[in-house]
């Protein structure tokens, strides 16, 4: 049952509710970094990595620090009368976690693998303000996912984002050679291409995944 659930979550995060084409999250890097295949792959890998990590950490923080339940750590630590409700701090806490996480990952990669840092490094600072990361962590909470489900959702959302970025980069490399009307060049034609791809992805919403 568990495995089946995880499979359903991944398929819907990658195809049916694709972050770019159906949820509109992470459009800035999608338009900005999709000019070449190499940089698209680099950005995609960085996003998958940070999304998975951010989903893990924010879920733990939300469940054990912010949520007013018997498991709240502040409740035990300070021997409070009742568990404190800190859920209103969700937005501030999550964005700080993501920002520091990105900084931390950057430092670790720089020390451990300079080669990987060279290929991923320049994309990491951009990720802090990527709304897809904050988006996936908030969705995990909204959907009431359990721990493993949240991690799988984070990973699959990253894969879906990478898929969209990779496809787009492939198309835009060819588009450079095409004869596009002057007013359409650059961002406008990229959006119209994305619109046509979104129509194709709309086909996935016909998939019926039994729970």
């Amino acid at each position: 049952m568990e495995i089946r659930m995880l499979f359903i979550i991944s398929i819907s995060a990658i195809f049916i509710n694709n972050f770019i084409f159906s949820r509109f999250l992470g459009l800035c890097p999608y338009i900005g970094v999709s000019k070449q295949l190499d940089s698209a792959v680099g950005m995609g890998a960085a996003v998958i990595f940070v999304m998975t990590l951010a989903s893990t950490v924010t879920w733990l923080v939300y469940t054990y620090l912010l949520l007013p339940a018997q498991t709240n750590l502040f409740y035990h630590l300070f021997a409070l009368k009742e568990p404190p409700d800190l859920t209103f701090l969700k937005t501030i806490a999550f964005i700080l976690i993501i920002a520091s996480l990105v900084q931390f990952v950057e430092m670790v990669i720089q020390k451990v693998s300079p080669a990987l840092y060279k290929s991923l490094g320049i994309y990491l600072p951009l990720i802090t303000t990527n709304c897809a990361i904050l988006g996936v962590t908030l969705l995990n909470i909204d959907e009431n996912y359990r721990f493993i489900e949240a991690i799988v959702n984070g990973f699959a959302a990253g894969v879906g984002f990478t898929l969209a970025l990779f496809l787009m980069a492939g198309i835009r490399e060819k588009l450079d050679l095409a004869d596009v009307p002057k007013a359409m060049q650059g961002i406008p034609i990229a959006f119209i291409t994305a619109g046509l791809m979104a129509i194709a992805f709309l086909g996935f919403s016909g998939l019926k995944l039994g729970m």
Partner: peptide, 14 residues
């Protein structure tokens, strides 16, 4: 639906 958003902003920006 989502595709309409992409198409609209593409044409308005153009």
């Amino acid at each position: 639906l989502p595709p309409g958003a992409f198409l609209t902003i593409g044409f308005v920006m153009a």
